[in-house]
Design a binder for these strands. Structure first.
Lengths: 231, 231
DNA sequence: ACCTACATATCGAAT
DNA sequence: ATTCGATGTGTAGGT
């Protein structure tokens, strides 16, 4: 990994065009040829970048660029696509290289799978008398997150999201259409469950006769004591 | 901006939990307190991070951590949420600070807004005799990208995407359903326009009587001479 | 401040 | 290889 602090301008040409005027930035060149251009603010997304695999080629700037004060020009070319990053370096303020080795990678916990496990264990959250048929109930168009039976014996399909968006309602609608063609299951009603449900999604769900359920992950996790001693 | 190369382990606790085992990584601390943890591979997304605004607090490691070889411990606390990043530093291999100043920001060209402007200006791309009713035609469920009138006086709703996916067809379908309830507009037919249309999306669109149109952005920009002198 | 839609999204699993 | 779904999505633009 090479770290360069430089006064530079950057142009990206590929799926779109993007231009960064002259300013001081961090240029991060990774071992796989990928390049990140970061400013001293914003979030983790670089101002400009090139995804790996890529190659960095150092060229002599054109006459007009030299006159303007460009010391070096880097051309970062994607190996896969016709995407290119052109970095004009006016002044290098720092330059260091470091050997990092291979990273063992990230271990995660608390994603949708955990939410699903918790809801399956606490199926009464859906309503009194509910019983679990199964998680990841497989259909031709994909797995239904949770299939359950309500107090009256009716089948309920649950689509589970962290963020309840309109896409999730569409997904559940497709499942319900399919499940309701099965005479052994029909009629199947739908429950759209999420930590947060967007107003638009709620409107669409209600319009289609789908019940909305907002989940409190922290409360559900509080009930399940195994999750408190993960690391 | 501070750049540190260190042998470290990292734990994130917040919306989820994530753990990075001991390895050499880049720690990038920005002026707004945000921190990025990068390895020498992957794309622009850090292995772990803290979004701004945040504060970095250096603490003395606990007894057990000291025995294990932890020299320093950084606690990065989000100012907004109860999100925390804990970085255990076993060895610092590099440490430098740099003053970058404020970045002038990125200038983009070729995003959906540009496509929409060009298609509105060159509405004949849809067919001979087409006239523009308006861009961003507002409805209760969101804005229709372009509403036009064809040679026979019929109304046409255009959904525009850079990449034509199945979601875009669903979106247009919802708009068409709504628009066709309006007797002043009905019947409204749909056109799904994108630089690239996925085969699945095309099949679904055709199945629903929606016309597909592949756009050549470069050609459309070529017609519009103002766009040739953007940079 | 909240909500909505777009993104050079990235990333991983399943097909 | 490609598609699909999740993301600690981020980001910009509107109301």
């Amino acid at each position: 990994m090479r770290l360069v602090i430089a006064r530079c301008s950057v142009d990206y040409v590929g799926r779109l065009k993007a231009h960064l005027p002259l300013a001081i930035r961090l240029l991060l060149i990774k071992a796989d040829g990928s390049v990140l251009v970061h400013s001293d603010g914003g979030s983790y997304k670089p101002l400009n970048w090139m995804s790996p695999p890529a190659t960095v080629r150092r060229t002599t700037p054109a006459e007009t660029d030299l006159e303007e004060g460009v010391q070096e020009q880097w051309i970062v070319q994607s190996a896969k696509a016709d995407d290119r990053l052109i970095i004009n370096i006016y002044e290098q303020l720092h330059d260091s290289s470091h050997d990092l080795g291979v990273d063992p990678g990230l271990i995660k916990d608390g994603v949708e799978a955990d939410l699903q496990r918790l809801l399956a264990e606490q199926i009464h959250t859906l309503g009194d008398g509910f019983t679990l048929i199964r998680r990841e109930y497989f259909t031709a168009i994909g797995p239904v997150d949770i299939l359950a039976r309500d107090a009256t014996g009716g089948t309920v399909a649950v689509e589970l999201k962290r963020r309840g968006d309109i896409d999730g309602v569409e997904q559940l609608t497709r499942y319900l259409e399919l499940l309701n063609r099965d005479p052994l299951l029909a009629p199947v009603r739908g429950v759209f469950a999420a930590q947060q449900i967007k107003p638009q999604a709620r409107v669409l769900a209600v319009d289609r006769g789908i019940e909305c359920l907002t989940l409190d992950y922290d409360a559900m996790r509080g009930v399940d004591d195994t999750s408190t001693r993960l690391f």
